[in-house]
């Protein structure tokens, strides 16, 4: 596997350092060739920077890509927004030589060059395509059999598809695959592909942000999802922080929110404490309790399954 730089993005490092922790722990458990590199900035956030100055948006993203281009490594990010913004600008520039030349002319001022050679991956499709089912299933020590979870893809994991090219933009499957490989059931639900709505909080429309979060959380309670699985800090903020605020105001909703790297870490045998899951606002205790009960009642068929999965068992 090619070496890759991790693009943490502003939100994870500023607000949710425990998500960086669980990401590092799973990279290390799989012995993935990851690096921290100097020189990244904000991706930049599209709804903010692009609205104010589209040129600054393009140059900032191109500069970030030029950092990995220059090092000859790929890029992986646990943030959907970051990858989507970087990939959108990369795709635009690769298809518009004039614009690319203009951007590179500017980047020359800071001794950088955008070539667009580096692959840009979001962590979920990266684990699906680059790490793969066999390696994941060989590494995990505990499964989530008996657990029913809802998956929230997050718009920017898969869209815009002309730039990301990693899954079906309207009916994606890779996140579902990963969850099933870990043994959990991925519940179908009406609001599965609905945008989380966190963007409304960034334009001073908090009540509207809560309204969109509520749409999904009410449905999740109704279908009795054990947890909502996300892999985007913005979606995490929306469903963890904002849900916490709504519960405090007396709303009858409750679904623990779990980051994909935390779920994978738990399957690898890491403890919730090591993974930093105490940093969540909405209590994950009931999810962990139910999971423990499911693990305790795992029947003999699972033991046979495990033995049959050893390489050469059927030879």
């Amino acid at each position: 596997m090619k070496e890759f730089a991790v693009f943490w993005g502003c939100t994870i490092q500023a607000r949710f350092p425990f998500l960086e922790k669980s990401s590092r722990l799973v990279f290390e458990a799989f012995k993935l060739p990851y690096r921290d590199v100097n020189g990244f900035t904000c991706c930049p956030e599209k709804s903010l920077i692009n609205n104010v100055d589209p040129k600054a948006f393009a140059v900032t993203a191109a500069r970030n890509v030029s950092v990995v281009d220059g090092l000859g490594v790929d890029l992986v990010s646990p943030c959907t927004g970051c990858v989507s913004n970087l990939a959108t600008v990369k795709e635009d520039l690769l298809h518009n030589p004039g614009e690319k030349a203009e951007v590179n002319n500017l980047l020359k001022e800071v001794d950088k060059e955008f070539t667009g050679e580096a692959n840009l991956f979001h962590l979920v499709p990266f684990f699906h395509d680059q790490v793969g089912k066999n390696i994941i299933q060989r590494k995990i020590k505990k499964t989530f059999a008996g657990m029913k979870v809802a998956i929230h893809y997050g718009c920017h994991m898969i869209r815009p598809s002309h730039a990301l090219k990693n899954d079906d933009p309207m009916d994606p499957v890779k996140f579902d695959d990963l969850i099933r490989w870990l043994g959990a059931e991925s519940l179908g639900h009406r609001t599965k592909m609905m945008c989380c709505g966190q963007g409304l909080d960034r334009v001073d429309q908090h009540e509207n942000a809560l309204h969109l979060a509520r749409e999904k959380l009410v449905e999740l309670k109704k279908i009795e999802a054990d947890a909502l699985i996300v892999c985007c800090p913005s979606c995490f903020q929306q469903f963890d922080n904002n849900q916490f605020l709504m519960i405090r105001e007396g709303e009858k909703i409750y679904t623990p929110v779990i980051y994909f790297t935390e779920l994978l870490g738990l399957a690898l045998g890491l403890s919730p404490e090591e993974l930093g899951m105490g940093g969540h606002r909405v209590d994950v205790g009931p999810f962990l309790k139910k999971w423990k009960e499911q693990l305790d009642k795992a029947g003999p068929s699972e033991v046979i399954d495990t033995e049959l999965n050893v390489p050469g068992a059927l030879a």
Binding site: Q13, P17, F18, E20, K21, R24, D36, V37, N38, G39, F40, T41, D53, K55, A56, V59, T60, R63, N64, V67, L106, L107, E109, V110, K112, G276, G279
Partner: peptide, 21 residues
């Protein structure tokens, strides 16, 4: 959470580019 020192930001280069723009 026992995380390493964060990598250096490229903020100074951004400031320079924004000034040119």
């Amino acid at each position: 959470y026992g995380l390493p020192e964060p990598a250096k930001s490229g903020g100074d280069e951004i400031k320079k580019l924004l000034a040119i723009l």
